[in-house]
């Protein structure tokens, strides 16, 4: 396949994954704002911006730290190149560019997402509509991924799409965890407080893990257990361990199919092995924030190595 097509589908998958995760993050923030007081809510909203790496930009624009202002900035502001609308547009542009690499169903699902959301996000989203909009974003991302899963040939094109999805998901999960721990907890004394519990719940909600965690832990919420679940539980599809298992299997198919290994392949295998050998005790000993910072840097390096080794760009 063309290097440009690999690049296009890799990023298309990343954009779609990111829109979905942003929707979850906003949904969790929205819920928090509904159940806690105003001052807590504004902290929450700020944490959403920090997670997305948009806090500085937003501050520079002088926006207020309220739900409607921040959700609109994240969803549709034209000053925000990383808005959901911009990303859906980019995903759709990429899909158009790699039209011959995807099936008609994948294309139609992507195109339909764009048509729907372009419409829904044409005007500021009212608070009463936010839930519905977030729902549509999540469902559209699911429908694109479902079309890929159900209709695409299991070849290198599919591998690059899956690698894009799971690199992005690992990145997003790690960021959500980091912000929660680093930004929202001003002091250790807060650990175990009611506020703290609510925030851990928000972490779970942001990664669609609240139900699974409840089932596994008979309803108990303990921060360490949640961190372990989100980082190391290979059964949970948004955990770092799961994402890296998927990255590995897709990379293995590429290596096998192409008949040659790459630097990206080595990097990925090393990182996976390291992750698999880590216990949650070691993570906290090392420092959760430090662990995640290192994880995100490795994740980024792997993405760059893939782009270079598979000739994404001339």
């Amino acid at each position: 396949m063309l290097g440009r097509s690999a690049w296009g589908i890799f990023w298309m998958a990343r954009y779609m994954e990111r829109t979905e995760n942003i929707a979850r993050l906003l949904d969790a923030g929205f819920r928090m704002a509904l159940t806690r007081g105003i001052s807590v809510a504004s902290d929450e909203w700020r944490s959403v911006l920090v997670t997305l790496g948009l806090d500085e930009e937003y501050k520079a624009l002088g926006g207020e730290y309220s739900g409607p202002a921040i959700t609109n900035y994240i969803l549709r502001d034209k000053h925000n190149p990383g808005s959901v609308l911009a990303m859906i547009e980019a995903a759709r542009t990429n899909a158009r560019m790699v039209r011959t690499a995807i099936t008609r169903e994948v294309w139609e699902a992507t195109n339909e997402s764009w048509m729907l959301l372009k419409d829904m996000l044409a005007r500021p989203v009212k608070e009463s509509e936010l839930g519905n909009v977030l729902d549509v974003i999540r469902r559209q991302a699911t429908s694109v991924r479902g079309a890929m899963e159900g209709t695409m040939l299991r070849n290198d094109i599919f591998n690059f799409a899956r690698i894009g999805t799971h690199l992005e998901r690992a990145d997003n999960t790690a960021r959500i965890l980091d912000v929660k721990y680093h930004v929202l907890l001003p002091s250790v004394a807060w650990v175990g407080s009611r506020l703290d519990n609510a925030q851990w719940e928000m972490v779970l909600r942001s990664v669609a893990g609240e139900r699974a965690f409840r089932w596994l832990n008979a309803g108990a919420l303990d921060p360490k257990g949640i961190a372990e679940f989100v980082i190391l539980d290979g059964r949970f599809p948004r955990s770092l361990a799961y994402c890296y298992a998927k990255l590995n299997s897709n990379m293995a198919w590429l290596v096998k199919g192409y008949g040659f290994d790459t630097g990206a392949g080595h990097l990925l295998r090393d990182a996976t092995e390291q992750l698999n050998q880590t216990s949650i005790a070691e993570v906290f000993e090392y420092g959760l924030h430090e662990f995640i910072t290192r994880f995100l840097a490795t994740n980024r390096r792997i993405a760059e190595a893939i782009a270079a080794d598979y000739r994404f760009i001339a």
Binding site: M1, G3, R4, T100, F160, Y258, F260, Y310, R311, A314
Partner: peptide, 24 residues
Amino acid sequence: GAELVEAGDLRVVDGRVRMRTTRG
């Protein structure tokens, strides 16, 4: 079942017009 290429994908290498693929 043909590749859809743009100018940026193409280059003359060793006397042939070639496209940049993930394998070379």
